[in-house]
Design a protein around this nucleic acid. Sequence first.
DNA 1: TTGAAAGCGCTAACAT
DNA 2: ATGTTAGCGCTTTCAA
Lengths: 336, 336
Amino acid sequence: MVTIYDIAQKANVSAMTVSKVINNTGRISEQTRKRVKKVMEDLNYIPNSNARSLVLQQTQILSLLITDITNPFYTSLARGAEDSAKKLGYRLLFGNSDEDYIKEQDYVDMILSTRVDGVLFAPAGDGSLKNLEKLRAHNIPFVILDRAVPGIESDIVSGDSRQGARNLVDYLVSLGHRRIALVNGSLDVSTARLRYEGYAEALQLQGIALDEDLVIHKSYREYKDEDQLARLLDLPAPPTAIFAANNFLAVGVIGALRKRGIRVPEDMSVVCFDDLDLSSALDPFLTVAAQPSYQFGAMGIQLLVERIQGSAVPEARKVVLPSELIIRSSAKTIGE
Amino acid sequence: MVTIYDIAQKANVSAMTVSKVINNTGRISEQTRKRVKKVMEDLNYIPNSNARSLVLQQTQILSLLITDITNPFYTSLARGAEDSAKKLGYRLLFGNSDEDYIKEQDYVDMILSTRVDGVLFAPAGDGSLKNLEKLRAHNIPFVILDRAVPGIESDIVSGDSRQGARNLVDYLVSLGHRRIALVNGSLDVSTARLRYEGYAEALQLQGIALDEDLVIHKSYREYKDEDQLARLLDLPAPPTAIFAANNFLAVGVIGALRKRGIRVPEDMSVVCFDDLDLSSALDPFLTVAAQPSYQFGAMGIQLLVERIQGSAVPEARKVVLPSELIIRSSAKTIGE
DNA sequence: TTGAAAGCGCTAACAT
DNA sequence: ATGTTAGCGCTTTCAA
């Protein structure tokens, strides 16, 4: 491998001079600089960033940990993070926890040993607490994405789950629905709790009694489980509308409904949190509370880098990105 | 930061002994091992992988470079790569070139300076040649994904674009179509060339003259450009079916068709290469030649690690993953 | 303007 | 079974 010493020798200077040329530090005569640069090109020299990191005590690497790479919400978020990181001169080390605390922990260990400069962390849920505490114990700056974790104070970029849920339920009520089911994520996850709260609040404000029989808590990823849904539909007074707490659950719900011959929206209205990606453009069908996922990533990196570089950054900044109600055709006026 | 020296001191041993405990090398008495381990835990010690990489001359990092993180094909591929890398003890450094040679080059430089052990490289197109040559010049093992690049001999995992295209066209012909348009990617990309060839071959075998007026070459990502499509539809004898060379182009085509009030499949049949993701489960609509994208990634990592670790690996292994024709409802018998 | 020396955290090779 | 030495490629400090 070509090192600065190879360059130094060929250019008849010291390694130190080469280093200065590379980093544009110190005073170097124009002549020397040119000569060194020439040799670097001739020899195809590429600095070894491991050696650099070792002495500098910083890597210029940021880590992004998400929970589900197949979900367009996170894909788009990743894109925002990547663009932003690139712009700011950082590399992105990428991890996918699959909503699994163990996998998440493995990634935390990897992150720690890589000595990344900071972490953009989308927690799997409340159980992420000890993983985040570990990062903190090692003084790695991090910004939390999407889901708050009780017990951790930090910068966080999140959506407004409560408000988004209320908008969705309000909308359904405005269509005449009163038996509205909630197919929720696990209560172990802050956004699921907030969506549940928003759902409950909206109902209360509309003077509709909350019926716990109409509420299912599963996981954001268990969109294929149809048993619980069956129970919902076999109720003496089944719902006329379903609010799915995320996009995947909505897809699962609709799939299961169709299997039973229940048409959406004719026989059942369905709305959800989070949009689907481009392919839904084929059939702009789902009525959703869409979140600005790209912004989650871009903004997250920005906060993170500010915290890494900035001296006087306020503690625990909370950025809340609003969701947008996009009315399409998966919900309709009741009884029409 | 806690180093092996801190551990060594607390445990009353030398740094070397600590190193041996960490790596399970050399002979260490059970007693010493226990004591050292205890101290490591007490001090929350995490090895510095940069220092390790520097002396070992290997990083245990693999790089994955894809061209479009928003495309489910690559997302799924990334997931396969990630799972596989994790299983084999490698970290994954992730890059997205956006089908852009310049961005791709930036990533190559980053990869080089990180001294990754190997690269899984999905090229943007033929112009990736010099980027791949650069990797080769620096002796970084790589495996190419999806698109062959003329001038580069290497391990490669690709689909069977020619055969997939033929299947799709044959299917359309079997439905009675004879004026079949091709909305293709750029001829700068091997898969686009092969899909074009497959298209042409299928037509010829069916005794249908190829009409270049029915062929459009754009880019795999330009799914929103409607001008060229308009030209196609305004032809004296417009097509009755369209073969889109990838999923995004199909979405664009269908969107544009609908804007003009042309229904799919009633007025126009549409098929494409590559499936959409889960969200298409909502409306299993598109008839596609689906590729096993997860396998692309998983298999790619496997070949890559074999090449990195293995001594006697044959040169330039070519793995071809077949596509599967999935017939849904975006194409129908002509005139029915 | 340039360079020598020391050290970042770790491990291979070689003692003891 | 354990320790000493040297060095991976780079930069900081200080001296020339």
